[in-house]
Design a protein around this nucleic acid. Structure first.
Length: 968
RNA sequence: GGGCGGAUAGCUCAGUUGGGAGAGCGCAGCCCUUACAAGGCUGAGGUCACAGGUUCGAUCCCUGUUCCGCCUACCA
């Protein structure tokens, strides 16, 4: 047993974390016999630092894990980080940029060394921040998506899907980020409404001097790549023009006017320019046409115009080019008009650069079949989404899912396990080496000549060694017809021609590809490990909705495919944390609140509790510091309660869970608080079982502050102090003896309830609970492995009787408060119980009433004779009178009573309406009618009593007034 | 364009099988009562967005309207 300082110092939180870690308490092996319970953490980016979303996410998982661990489960919270391909690469490239370098000057190998170095240096930052939060992850099992094991999993999955024909290459338009220099999946594109300009441009008709067609566009620069002008086939205005040609301004090309169903005659002029290589819509039109329209790429990887754009524009940035095109068109008098136009524009989710659709060869996963299975798993309830509302979006997305573009033109990540042989021939008989196009990041010397790129065959013929080519390649574009060699092991030679010279695919996989395997790759798959057998499928996944599609859906698909089982039973989808005004937090808005700052200022416990208490299902959290502060006060309250109990229970033998005989000596308040404690445990269990975190948090808050502190501790004081005074007694008096038993029992009850409260609170506030608990008599090493309180049968009798006591006390307090009487003023009070049974309870507990309500004299009798000058409080089971000779402020008491009367009359009127309604009597359930009748009787009784009091007062007032008149 | 969610006390929000409207903060009054003024006690404050409907009875179920968010989509 220890002593507690004056106030809780949360700065020492980490000493407990160190203890937990030292003792290995985060490992599931602390409960070797327990049923497995497992959560895999949504791996944060290695580049990341803890933000509010992480903090909430981790707090909720920690609550579940600590709760289950205390319940004896073999609870595993498996942590790790994600290599975050694009984000991490960006960070390191920026770093290089400051040194005047870029990744190409370093070359792939050296660049990757740099990234790993960066990762070793900074990659643990977010992990350490999670520790500050108190996250009880099993760090001995920590994983990283680029670990050897996880990489093997990725490779296995890729090869298997390739073999099954579910991974393929294709040439089509993709979302390209010119800044990150890579393809992106549809999900990685954020659409934002922007105000742009709709420009109406005249395209002169060929062979019809003066005739023209007007097209409207938001991207004038793309006209350089136009392949046609399209109109709706039914559009009368243009019917005659279909099949004719127009002269494409600023170029020497002529392009046809074609008909396509996809054109909206209502929009713009009804005629649209078609740029197949730079617009998804136009791509579709181009593919529908016979003959197919040509794809003319006028914008390159960097967002600059290509040679195909014409010599006036080649090399210009796409937006510079736009300005120049507009200028040039204006000069030619071909701009009819411009208007403002609101449209949504795709941005790179990593760097916010505007996406450029480019026609490239990429790798795709055919997800249709996988998605079907994943839909089934949710539809038939094998996986639960909580709150359920998300199912709808899940289904909607899954049912319209498009193939997943998984290749990225970056270096940090899992390189695609595919090789190409430059010496084999394609089915059409071409040399594959001629179809592999390499651009070098710097000119290489080849026999005296400077070489900047070319086909692989050319480069080899000019004398460059294979290593030189690969190591200096900026881009390697492999045409569609080249045969891929996909292999689990790096192939030493071509399986077809035996050539030892193979070129590996330059691209890496989307980071989400490896994240999709997380629930089983982290447990050891593809090996058949004990962990995998024990913990898969995992219990629950806790995450925010913004990665429902990115991650959750894909994990379900991959889990079902490769483990033949769901990856988790439940998915709990929590809120987004916003700022106090409801804005999403973002760096650009400058409204980000740093969780670590909150932890520094208020402690991790208060911060966690604030997040939890507001984590209601289906609603976003508006975060504000005040709330955290409020929970810091709660900690203070708890601390002081503990201090009080500890100083008063010195020497009290620890109340072991088995030894319960002391309970027999308890009186009503003691039995009541135990019953409430048990009820609270039950409420928390139910709430957490349903992922109703806010309910659970509020239940324990309510119990500790408003039941334990406000009532029980106050009620214990008369026992502790009064009996303490007579403690020196000989003990001959049986009443004293008995009360000694009561005192001992009360002290134990205080300790027991404090201990139980701490355990119930521990999952939410791990640090302060540990600190207090360590000061309590205890046997376990830590509260975090002590048993979570089991709900017992509730003590209805004690709860009922306690309500009488509470009514009596608050009745008296109410009169005191309402009539503005000083708390120090000791009153005389009379209580008239509704029946003798209630009276017995009140008499037996008179000590509590008089102490808490501060009375010097207390009379309890069903036949109490109400004096003339009394204040009255009418409660459900009793009436309270406080005679106020001389003190009575008759008018304010009358006002008070009339207010009560009004309330009760309103209720009675409402009930009247109901009970006089025959249909209600006939149709409503009997219990309800009975209840309403009972209420009616109760209320009328109450009303009569209040009326009686009013009468009495009015009588008195009459006399008073009379006296005053006489006196004057 | 399609879909989803929200509108309850001054503020932020709970309210799960439709049966007398709750919390926290804030506010007002009285109190430094020997755990805690980071506190105690008492209290004020709500036609549960609006309009219909179902029902004996609606904050809750249905329809519509208004306002506010979010997701999604190939409106050039």
């Amino acid at each position: 047993m220890g002593e507690l300082g004056r106030s809780y110092r949360f700065n020492d939180e980490m000493k407990w974390y160190e203890l937990w870690q030292r003792e290995g308490l985060f490992r599931p092996e602390v409960n070797p016999e327990g049923e497995p319970y497992c959560i895999v953490i949504p791996p944060p980016n290695v580049t990341g630092s803890l933000h509010m979303g992480h903090a909430l996410n981790a707090t909720l998982q920690d609550i579940l894990i600590r709760w289950k661990r205390m319940q004896g489960f073999r609870a595993l919270w498996l942590p790790g980080t994600d290599h975050a391909g694009i984000a991490t690469q960006n960070v390191v490239e920026r770093e290089l940029g400051r040194e005047g370098l870029d990744r190409y000057t370093l070359g792939r190998k050296e660049f990757l060394r740099r990234v790993w170095r960066w990762k070793e240096e900074y990659g643990e930052r977010i992990i350490n921040q999670l520790k500050r939060l108190g996250a009880s992850c099993d760090w001995s099992r920590q994983r990283f998506t680029l670990d050897e094991g996880l990489s093997r999993a990725v490779r296995e999955v890729f090869v298997k899907l390739f073999e099954d024909g579910l991974i393929y290459r294709d040439l089509r338009l993709i979302n390209w980020c010119p800044r990150c220099h890579t393809a992106l999946s549809d999900l990685e594109v954020e659409h934002e409404e922007l105000e742009g300009r709709l420009t109406f441009i005249r395209y002169p008709l060929s062979g019809d001097e003066g005739g023209y067609v007007v097209v409207a566009t938001t991207r004038p620069e793309s006209m350089l790549g136009d392949a046609a002008v399209a109109v709706h086939p039914e559009d009368g205005r243009y019917k005659d023009l279909v099949g004719k040609m127009v002269k494409l301004p600023l170029t020497r090309r002529e392009i046809p006017i074609i008909a396509d169903e996809g054109v909206d005659p209502q929009f713009g002029t009804g005629a649209v320019k078609v740029t197949p290589a730079h617009d998804f819509n136009d791509e579709a039109i181009a593919r529908r046409q016979t003959p197919k329209l040509p794809f003319i790429s006028v914008i390159d990887d960097d967002g600059k115009m290509t040679d195909a754009a014409g010599k006036n524009y080649a090399g210009l940035d796409r937006y510079e080019c736009r300005r120049k095109v507009l200028e040039d068109l204006k000069e030619l008098g071909l701009i009819e008009k411009e208007q403002r136009h609101l449209h949504s524009v795709g941005h790179c989710y990593r760097c916010k650069t505007i996406i450029e659709p480019l026609s490239t060869v990429q790798w795709y996963v055919d997800v249709k079949g996988l998605a079907e299975e994943a839909v089934k798993a949710v539809r038939d309830g094998r996986i639960g989404l909580i709150p359920e509302g998300w199912k709808k979006s899940y289904f909607a997305w899954m049912e319209n899912i498009k193939d997943w573009c998984i290749s990225r033109q970056i270096w940090w990540g899992h390189q695609i396990p595919v090789w190409y042989c430059p010496y084999c021939k394609t089915e059409e008989g071409q040399h594959q080496g001629d179809l592999i196009h390499v651009t070098l990041y710097r000119p290489l010397n080849a026999g005296g000549d400077e070489v900047r790129g070319g086909t692989y065959t050319e480069l080899r013929l000019r004398g460059l060694a294979p290593e030189d080519i690969v190591n200096n390649a900026k881009t390697v574009k492999v045409e569609m017809t080249v045969k891929p060699i996909c292999s689990r092991e790096d192939p030493g030679e071509c399986p077809f021609c035996g050539s030892k010279e193979l070129i590996r695919d330059n691209d890496v996989l989307d980071t989400w590809f490896s994240s999709a395997l997380w629930p089983f790759s982290t447990l050891g798959w593809p090996d058949d490990t004990d962990d995998l057998k024990t913990y898969y499928p995992t219990s629950v996944l806790v995450t925010a909705f913004d990665i429902l599609f990115f991650w959750v859906a894909r994990m379900i698909m991959m889990g079902l495919r490769f483990m033949d089982d769901i990856p988790f039973h439940d998915v709990y989808i929590h809120a987004i944390v916003r700022d106090a005004t409801g804005q999403k937090m973002s760096k650009s808005k400058g409204n980000v609140i740093d969780p670590l700052l909150m932890i520094d200022r208020f402690g991790a416990d208060a911060f966690r509790f604030a997040l939890t208490a507001f984590a209601a299902q289906g609603r976003d959290i508006r975060f504000s510091e005040e709330r955290v502060e409020g929970y810091k006060n709660f900690i203070n309250k708890l601390w002081n309660a503990a201090k009080f109990i500890l100083t008063n229970t010195e020497g009290v033998v620890p109340a072991s869970t088995h030894e319960t005989s002391w309970r027999d000596d308890l009186d009503i308040p003691g039995r009541w608080i135990l019953s409430r404690l048990s009820k609270t445990a039950e409420r928390i269990n139910t709430a957490l079982g349903e992922y109703r975190f806010n309910d659970a948090a509020n239940a324990i808050y309510q119990f500790i502050w408003h039941e334990f502190c406000d009532w029980y501790i106050e009620l214990s004081k008369p026992i502790i102090y009064d009996q303490g005074r007579s403690g020196a007694d000989t003990g001959a008096d049986p009443a004293v003896k008995e009360s000694r038993g009561l005192k001992a029992a009360t002290l134990r009850c205080l300790l027991h309830t404090l201990d139980g409260s701490l355990r119930l609170l521990h999952p939410f506030m791990p640090f302060v609970t540990e600190e207090i608990w360590q000061a309590l008599p205890h046997t376990d090493r830590s509260i975090m492995i002590s048993p979570f309180p089991h709900p017992e049968e509730s003590d209805a009798d004690a709860e009922e009787k306690m309500s009488y006591i509470m009514e009596a006390i608050s009745g008296i307090r109410s009169i005191r408060g309402e009539l503005n009487m000083a708390p120090s003023l000791e009153l005389t009070a009379q209580i008239k119980p509704n029946n003798p049974g209630i009276g017995e309870v009140l008499k037996g507990n008179a000590l509590y009433i008089s102490r808490l309500a501060r009375t010097k004299k207390l009379e309890v009798d069903t036949a109490v004779r109400k004096g003339k000058g009394v204040a009255t409080s009418v409660r459900d089971h009793l009436e309270v009178y406080v005679p106020l000779e001389g003190l009575l402020d008759v008018d304010s008491e009358l006002r008070r009573l009339r207010k009560d009367l009004q309330k009760i009359e309103d209720s009675i009127t409402a009930l009247d309406r109901k009970l006089l309604n025959e249909e209600f009597l006939r149709k409503a359930p009997k219990e309800v009618v009975e209840k309403e009748k009972l209420k009616y009787n109760e209320f009328t009784l109450k009303k009569e009593r209040i009326l009686e009091s009013i009468d009495k007062l009015q009588e008195l007032k009459g006399e008073d007034d009379g006296r005053k008149k006489e006196g004057s």
